[in-house]
Amino acid sequence: MTTNDLPSAPAPERVAVVTGGSRGIGRAVSLQLARDGLAVVVNYTRDAASAEETVKTITAAGGKAMPVRADVADEHAVAALFDRAEQEFGGVDVVVNSAGRLALSPIADLDLAVLDDMHRTNIRGAFVVARQAARRLRAGGSFLGVSTSVVGSRFPAYGAYAASKAAVESITLILARELRGRDVTVNTIAPGPTATDLFLDGKTPEEIDRLAKTPPLERLGTPEDIARVAAFLTSPAGHWVNGQVLRANGGMV
């Protein structure tokens, strides 16, 4: 028997932390990564029931998952989140920062308290999670930020939200370069109009129909569309993609 005939050792279990992992795109990412064989830490801030339901769905299918509450803008809570992941599953290989807030307003009418709350989650939270990911991800790992295609399309009333997500895009290549030599990738996915509760809330059927017709594919994206792209970017198959912002939006500008 040659060494080529010997059975290969099983690959070590990969572990993912998904912030905002209990609802919308974050939930779809949690479920997709679990289907791909990763143990998943499903982070949430307030909706414990949705987090528990997401974990139950994963474990019922034979996967591994646990819910962990943490406000992504709280550096101590996020450090504890990563501690739990390491204690329970042995390390962290994938971080998807899906937690975010959306508030729409013309800039002239913008409530600055709303701006501060949104930017606390979308900007400060992005930095807090990225900082822990940069410190903790194992070799071969990946960090994925979540932006929005509105950074490019610049729809009215999205000014504050787009500004917060532009910050996420701005740090993507910088962090990738800062992690030189670590064998860790950093990318950002920027979904277009996607049929989540966060997106649909407050929109009329006419507005939804108009937005659905914006991409050449003439439909809204689904959370599963985004999750499949996220799974590729954080997988070994996608490891040569690094420092990039990918607009997963069906072809809209």
Score class of each variant (00 low, 15 high):
64 K>I: 08
75 E>V: 13
158 Y>I: 05
229 V>G: 00
179 L>C: 10
151 V>R: 11
56 K>L: 13
90 G>C: 11
184 V>D: 00
236 P>A: 07
213 K>E: 14
79 A>N: 09
161 Y>D: 00
220 L>Y: 04
221 G>D: 08
25 I>N: 01
176 A>Y: 11
184 V>W: 03
200 L>I: 13
190 A>H: 02
214 T>K: 08
175 L>N: 03
176 A>R: 13
176 A>S: 09
76 H>I: 15
182 R>C: 09
71 D>S: 10
190 A>Y: 02
183 D>Y: 13
28 A>V: 00
112 L>Y: 06
128 V>A: 00
55 V>I: 06
46 R>A: 10
69 R>N: 12
2 T>Y: 15
171 I>N: 02
27 R>I: 04
178 E>M: 11
121 T>I: 14
215 P>L: 14
13 E>F: 04
35 R>F: 01
232 F>N: 00
212 A>D: 01
150 V>K: 00
131 R>S: 10
196 T>F: 03
165 K>A: 12
78 V>R: 07
164 S>A: 15
189 I>A: 01
102 L>S: 09
241 V>N: 08
57 T>Q: 12
102 L>A: 08
72 V>D: 05
86 E>G: 08
225 D>T: 13
69 R>Q: 14
104 L>Q: 05
160 A>L: 08
9 A>M: 15
97 N>H: 14
214 T>H: 10
184 V>R: 04
8 S>L: 15
89 F>T: 02
217 L>T: 15
191 P>D: 01
8 S>P: 04
144 L>A: 06
71 D>N: 14
58 I>C: 12
59 T>Q: 13
42 V>Y: 04
147 S>L: 08
70 A>I: 04
139 A>D: 11
46 R>N: 11
113 A>G: 08
57 T>Y: 10
253 V>N: 09
2 T>G: 14
79 A>E: 13
238 G>H: 06
237 A>C: 00
237 A>I: 05
57 T>V: 10
197 D>T: 12
97 N>A: 12
124 R>D: 02
14 R>T: 00
33 L>S: 09
232 F>D: 03
186 V>C: 06
17 V>T: 00
110 L>M: 12
180 R>F: 14
53 E>G: 05
77 A>F: 13
181 G>H: 06
246 L>R: 01
183 D>S: 10
11 A>D: 02
204 T>F: 14
167 A>I: 15
19 T>W: 06
140 G>I: 03
213 K>Y: 14
51 A>G: 05
112 L>R: 08
71 D>P: 03
218 E>P: 09
105 S>L: 09
116 D>V: 12
163 A>P: 01
109 D>Q: 10
187 N>R: 07
68 V>K: 12
108 A>N: 00
5 D>M: 13
124 R>Y: 02
54 T>M: 12
165 K>S: 07
